[in-house]
Every structure is written in C-alpha cells, then in structure tokens.
Amino acid sequence: MGEFREPLNVIVTGVGGQGNVLASQVLAAAAVEAGYRVSIGETFGASQRGGSVMSHVRISRDRTYGPLIPRGRAHLIVGFEPLETLRILMDYGNPETVVVMNDRPNYPIGCLLGEEKYPDPHLIVEAVNRLAAKNHVLPATELAKEAGNSMAANMVMTGALSGSGLLPFGGDRFTGVIETLFSGEVRDLNMRAFQKGTEAVQAAGTAR
C-alpha cells in the first residue's frame, strides 16, 4: 500500500468459534515482527458461544492507541461471515474502508428458527460493495476444506488479508509467525490455508 495512515485500524469479525481471536493474534504478531506497535481489543466471554465477535487491531509506528477503534474509522474489515461483515461495516466503516470477506453464511438462531430472515447473500455482497471502497470476496471455508480442514478458514482469511496488499508488510511476516505459533500437522494445514487465501485474493485482484 502507499502512504501509511496512523494508526491503521483493522477489524477482524465473525461468529464465536470461527477462530477470529487467533487470526487477530497472527496479524498482530506479524505487525510486531515488522517493527510496528500494536494494540488489540477483543471480545470474548459469553459471545464465544456462537455470538457475534470482533477483534480490533490498531497498527502504528510511533505511539500506542487505545484498544477500541472509533465507529466509522476502520480502514480494513476482515469478515469471516457475510452478515457479521455487513454489521461491522455499517458501524465502523466509511467510504474508504476496504473489506475482505468470506462468502459462507452462518445462520443466527433466529434465522434457523425462521423467525428472522437471513438476507440473500448476494444482497449482502452488494451492500458491502456499495458501502466500502473495495470488497474482496472469497470462498474461505471451501478453500480451507481444500487445504485439509474447514476450521482453517481463519488462516485462509489471514492469507487473503496479507495478499490484498493493504498492509504495510508482506506475507513473509505472517508465515514466520505461523511457523513459530504452530507445529506439526496444524502448522502445515495453517500454512496451506494461508497460501490459498493469498492466492485467491491475488488471482481475483489481477482479474479485475
């Protein structure tokens, strides 16, 4: 990316259990490796049981910022689930916000029961397209399955974030972190998932 806006405000959002805390950890550790300061605000607790969750990651050069990104001030939103992506974009986005989102819906209990309607996924993508400056949509869950396990969708998304070129540091910072954080089969799975995410976003980027 060109000029670095301080602080760079990134929100990682999804549904409790999708591994967004781990993804924000990997992002933060990569930023630290690249020499940046980071502060992270997480939601965990009751919402981990299938509720809406988000992590705020603020990357800066000179000073440390508070853990919460003000509404309307997110530069980047990484959405593990379409509805959560739109929810967070509506609260924290602005016309310059860039989005990386997984296309696989996860239905809230009210929608499973038929009491509420989950919006047509195409309408969600369309709405995100309208609100955001750019939207990278990818089948992260499918790509994670191809990598070996659908649970690795969080690393696919992390790879997509890295591959989007929106961060002031490269994918090698991430792979270094994945190498140290994990071992054995889990490391290999996460590494494959990360690469698939990076490739997916770059392939789409050149197609546009």
């Binding site: 409790g16 809406s52 929810r87 209990i109 309607k117 919006p119």
Partner: peptide
C-alpha cells in the same frame, strides 16, 4: 438488508 441479531447459543 436488515441485519438480524446473533445472540450466543
């Protein structure tokens, strides 16, 4: 589109 709430379950 209306965004339904997502309570924990």
């Amino acid at each position: 589109p209306a965004v339904p709430a997502r309570p924990p379950v």
